[in-house]
């Protein structure tokens, strides 16, 4: 929420004067109560100003609203939806193979917030993969891991994952309903994270979900050759380019240097793969992917799930 600075200033002034003069009239009391309510709704200090001060980020200062560089970038560059990616991969004929998804028993062992956000994304992608293949018990395990990490990141301040878990369990036998619930949960968490400027969690969890989707696709393609899937994998350089840009726009991007380096290397390989596919030599492109891209994706995933 962004409060109007002029009105905001008036409210703050009115409140301070009312307290100072100890107004006792009904109007004064009523006015004070209304102003208090107004400040609760709008916040006594402009949220954006607070964020800028805390983050020390570059800002675009214009007329009355201040928005950070990260907020602008977030609006101008949308990331795709990872559940949609999973659907596209599945449409190419990608099968479900047990044992590929991340171990849900280790969810509690992540203590670093960066690892928590990334693994929250990894479990979300596993959940989507399982639901799309009607493996709803597996999906439920992943959702429970998501909840553990969401609680660890204190996202319960923004949204309570508990009711979603209940909804999910009640609809376990209906994959369409479960998918609809997942889409709603994703929408709510996306918008709330944006509204609260939690871009670090938003992008790191996307990075985790993206890496996991890519890991599943490449592992399965390796064992079940699939040109259509290779094409979809090569297209992921578009999303990766945006993700790199957005993470680099976060406060203190040096913290994510290893992740960024890995992602840039994968992006380069994907671009090569895309060029290879454009030359209409899919077998050659596939060999190149197997040799260069797939091991790199595997290494990235191994690094992301490792408990620091």
């Amino acid at each position: 929420m962004t409060s109007h600075p002029f009105l905001h200033r008036c409210c703050c002034w009115y409140l301070s004067n009312a307290v100072y003069q100890r107004r006792s009239s009904r109007a004064g009391i009523m006015g004070t109560m209304l102003v208090v309510a107004s400040l609760v709704l709008g916040g006594c200090q402009d949220k954006d100003d607070t964020q800028n001060a805390q983050a020390g980020q570059d800002t675009s200062v214009v007329s009355e609203t201040v928005i950070t560089k990260a907020e602008t970038q977030d609006f101008l560059h949308s990331l795709p939806n990872t559940l949609h990616l999973a659907r596209m991969f599945k449409r190419t004929g990608m099968p479900y193979v047990t044992g590929l998804v991340h171990n849900t028993k280790v969810a509690q062992s992540y203590v670093d917030p960066t690892a928590q956000a990334i693994n929250l994304g990894i479990y979300s992608a596993d959940m989507g993969y399982a639901v799309l293949h009607n493996q709803n018990q597996e999906a439920l395990k992943s959702l429970k891991a998501v909840k553990i990490l969401a609680d660890a990141l204190q996202l319960n301040v923004l949204y309570d994952a508990g009711p979603w878990l209940g909804k999910f369990e009640r609809n376990l036998n209906n994959s369409d309903s479960v998918l609809a619930i997942m889409a709603q949960l994703q929408m709510q968490s996306d918008l709330l994270l944006r509204d609260n400027a939690r871009y670090d969690v938003l992008y790191l969890s996307f990075a985790g979900a993206y890496a996991e989707s890519l890991f599943l696709a490449t592992q399965l393609e390796k064992n079940h050759p699939n040109p259509a899937l290779i094409k979809r994998i090569s297209e992921q350089q578009l999303a990766l380019g945006k993700l790199i840009l957005l993470i680099e726009g976060l406060d203190d991007p040096e913290r994510y240097m290893i992740l960024l380096t890995d992602m840039k290397a994968i992006q380069d390989m994907m671009l090569k793969l895309d060029v290879g596919l454009a030359e209409k030599k899919p077998e050659k492109a596939r060999q190149m992917a197997l040799k260069e891209l797939y091991p790199k994706v595997e290494t990235l995933r191994k690094r992301l799930v490792a408990q620091s």
């Binding site: 609203t65 928005i67 977030d74 949308s78 998918l179």
Partner: peptide, 21 residues
């Protein structure tokens, strides 16, 4: 199904008459 959504106060984009997302 929901893919993505975004929102910002228009005043945050300064004097820009055109915004490309």
């Amino acid at each position: 199904s929901y893919e993505t959504a975004s929102f910002r106060p228009l005043s945050g984009f300064g004097n820009s008459r055109s915004i490309d997302a």
